[in-house]
Design a protein around this nucleic acid. Sequence first.
RNA 1: GGGCGUUUAGCUCAGUUGGUAGAGCGCCUCCCUUACAAGGAGGAUGUCGGGAGUUCGAGCCUCUCAACGCCCACCA
Length: 869
Amino acid sequence: MTQTTDKELASVYNARETEKEIYKFWEDNNCFKADSSSEKEPYSIVIPPPNVTGVLHMGHALDGTLQDILIRYNRMLNKEVLWMPGCDHAGIATQNVIEKNLAKEGLSRFDLGRDKFIEKTWEWANDHKNRILEQFKLLGASFDLSRKRFTLDKGCSDAVKKVFVDLYNKGLIYRGSYIVNWCPRCQSAISDIETNYEEQEGHLWEISYALKDTMGAIVIATTRPETMFGDVAIAVNPSDYKYKDLIGTSCVMPLTGRVIPIIADEYVDKSFGTGALKITPAHDPNDFEVGLRHNLPQIKVIDEKGNMMSNEFVPPQLQGLTREEAREKTVKMLEENQVLVRVTKHKHNVGTCQRCSTTIEPLLSRQWFVKMKPLAEPAIEAVKSGKIKFIPQRWEKNYLMWMENIRDWCISRQLWWGHQIPAYYHNETGEMVVALENPDPKNYTQDKDVLDTWFSSGLWSFETMGWPDTNCADYKKFYPTNTLVTGFDIIFFWVARMITMGLEFTKKPPFSTVFIHGLIRDEHGQKMSKSKGNTIDPVDLIEKYGCDALRFTLTYLCTYGGQDIKISDEKFEFGRNFSNKIWNASRYVLMNITKSQKELELDFDNLTIADKWILNELNETIKGVNENLESYRIGEVAGQLYDFFRSKYCDWYVELSKIEKNEAVLVYVLAQFLKLLHPIMPHITEAVWQKMPQIKESKAILKANYPKYLPELKFEEDSKKMETVFETIKALRNARAEFNIPLGSKIDIVLDKNEDLYSQIIPYLNRLAKVGAVKFEKDCNIPKSAYCNVLDTKITIPLEDLIDLKQEIARQNKKAEKLITELKSVEGRLNNDKFTSSAPEDVVQKTKERKDELTKEIALIKETIKKLS
RNA sequence: GGGCGUUUAGCUCAGUUGGUAGAGCGCCUCCCUUACAAGGAGGAUGUCGGGAGUUCGAGCCUCUCAACGCCCACCA
C-alpha cells in the first residue's frame, strides 16, 4: 500500500477535516440564506426549537438530519428553501437549572428576588444560547442562521401578548379557581400533559365516621387520610341499598368533630372499598366536581409547599408537617381513637411532575386557562380532511383521539422565567385589565405568573415568520410551512398546539405534512437519559466517525413506520466504512481521468453493454430515490443508494473499468450518484464534487439539480445480458473456490453456445474469473471437468487432476436438488386449474417461463452428472 | 379500562398494492489483485411468535392466543 502525505490522495478518508472545510465553504458563500423575494417555489421547515440551555443529543441528531435531508433535497429541486432555526426558553426546565446552581450556593430564587433571578437566567441563557445551534452546525445543518429566533425575543413576546389578548377578548382565555396539578417542588401549576402517572404500592385505609343523629357509623375508604380534614361530605351511590337510609343525614368527623352531610352521587362506585367516599373538593379533581354539583364548600388543608396548613380545620399537632409526615401521624391518631377499621395494600397511580418527578398535589388554585373545545374543532377538521397529514398515518388517530377529548389548558405557571401574563390589576380596586401594555404603570401591577412554555412554542410556525405583520416578506413567502419533522413524544405538547393556534390566528394550517420519526434508544432499547448514564453524545460520534457517517447510519436505520431506533457506538462504523468507500472509489475515478472536459460528454453511440447496464441501474436508482423521498421513505433512500454504489458501481462497474473504460460514463455515474446522496451525506459529496473535472451545472453540489429519471438511459435488453455475464463470472468464481484453484492458475473454459455474447466479454472473464482460454464447442466432452450452467449455456471447465469427480458429482447433485424442489412447486401451481384461471396473466406467464428455465437447467445438470459418473 | 406498536438468520433490523424471504454486524474458507484490509471473492444459517381462517398462493389480509413495549384515562 502506498502512503502519501497529500491529503487529496490519502487512502483513508479524513472526515472531520473535510467536513469542517466544506461547512465553512457553504457558510462563506452564504449558501443557506433564504431569499424571500425569490420567484422560486418556496419550501420551508421550522426547527422544533431546542432548549436554549441544552446540548445536542441523539434525538436532535436524528431530527436535524431528517430536516436537513428534506431541505437539501428541495433546494436541489430548485425551490427557495428556508430552514428556520431557533431556541426555546423552556420555562421550567431552564429555571430548574438555574435554581439547582443557586442551591449549590445554598440559595433559593426567593433569596435573589424576581428581577435578579431573571437577570441571572438571561445571563445563563445568553452564555449558552449559541451553543446548541453551533452544535447543529456540526451536523451539517443548512439552516439560515441570519433568521435565528428565540421564543423570548421581542418578536415572539409581542406575538404571545397579542395572542393572549385576542383569545381573552374572544372569551377563549379565562381565569378561575379550579383544581390543578400542583408541583410542590416547582411551586407551580402544571398542565395535564405535564403530569405523568406511575403505579405505586400504597394502602387503602378504612375509617369510621360516627353518625350524628343515630347510633352507628359509616365507613369510608381512602388512600390519602391526611386530606380528611378538608372533607366536606360523605358520598354514596343513590342506588346503594346499604346506605339508602343515611342519605340526607349527617356524620361527625373523627379527630376534629366537624359535622358533614351524607349525600348521594352517581359518581360513587358501589363495589369499590366500602361504597362510601369522602369528598375533599380542594384536594381531588373528582371530589371537586362532586362538590360543585352539590354546592359544597372547598376547604384547603395542604398548602403550595405540600405542607399541612395552619388553620381551624387541621388539628394543631399536624399543622406545618409535610404531606408524608401528616399521613403517618393521622393514621396513628385514627388508630388511637379506634376509628381505623381496616388497612389493605392497594396499588394505585400517583401523579408526578414531568420535570422533577415530585408527587403532584391536586390543589384548588386560581389559574389562567384556554378554552380548548372551540379551538380544537378546526384543528380536528384540518387533519380529518387531509389538509394536514401525518406520516406515518397511524398518528392521526392518536392526535384525533386527544383532540376530541380535549380539556381546557392551564397556561399560567408560578415561575419567573417566561412570558409574563399581560393582565394588570389596579393596586387599590383590584380591577383587571388584559392588554398589550400596562394601562398605567403607577396604579396597575402586572400579573405575577408566566405562561406555559408551550404557549409560545405553539406560535412558533408563524411568530418566526414575522407574524402579526402578515404583509412582511417572510410571512408571505414562507408561511404556511411545508413539513414539520418531530418525534411522537411532543405531538400533544407541540404539534397539536401549533395546529390549533396556527388555524385560529392565520386561518391556515401551519404545515401540510407532519413527519413523525421514532425515538433514539440505547442498544437494549432503553430510553437514553443522563441519569441512566446510557447516553451517546453525537458530538463524540461526529469526532470519531464523521458527521456524514452519523447522518448516513441514522438515516439508514429510519423505517417508514417510524420505529424507535436502537443504537450503539459501533453501529456508526457502518456509515464510516461507507464514507471511506465513496472516498476511495472517487479517488480511483479521479486518478483515472485522462480526457479533457469536452471529451467527457456522454456519447450514446459508443456504449458497451456494461455502460448501458450501469446507466440503466443508475436510472432505476434515480427513480426509486425520488419516489421514496417524496413519500418520506428516507431509510429506503439510504438503502438504495448504498446498494447501488457498493454492489453495482464499485463491485462491478469500477472493476470492469479496469479492463476497458468509458471515462465519460465512469464520471457521469459518479456525479449523478453524488447528487443523489448529497442530502444525506452532504460534506463528502460536496468535497468530491468540487474535485471533479467534468462540466458541472453548479459550482456547489448543494445547488446542483437533483437527478431525474431519464427515458434515454433505459437499456433493459442490454442490462439483462450483462446480468447473465455476472452470473457466469459468479459461477466460475464459485467453481474455483470449491476446487481451491489458486488465483495464480488460470482455468480454461468451453462454452456450448451464445458465442455472440461471450466473445464480447472474454477480457472480463480473464480478469474477473481468472479465465485462460475460452473456446466455443457444441458437444464438448472432456471427462475430468467441472461444469456450470448459466441459463441454457453449458460451461465446461477442464480441470485434469485438480478435480475430484466425486466432489463434483456431489456439487452438481446439490444444485439439482434445489432446482428440482423449486420445479415441483412451480409445476404444482401450473397444474392447478384454479391458479392458471385466477392468478394474473403476467404471474402465470412468469411461472411458465420459470418452469422452462428450471427444466432446461435440470436437464443440463443431469446430463453433466451422467457424464461424470 | 381504551388505543397503538413489536415478535423474521447468532445479534440489530429491512421487507411499498398477497407471487414463494434480504441487509449490516458476527461466523467459516481464501486473497495485501496498484481506489479502498474502514477492502475483495466464495460460503453456512430462518417450519417469518403459537394456532385457526380467507386465497390457486400468506412474512404481508382476517380472527384468536401469548410475550414485550408505548400512549391516553385516573376508581377513592
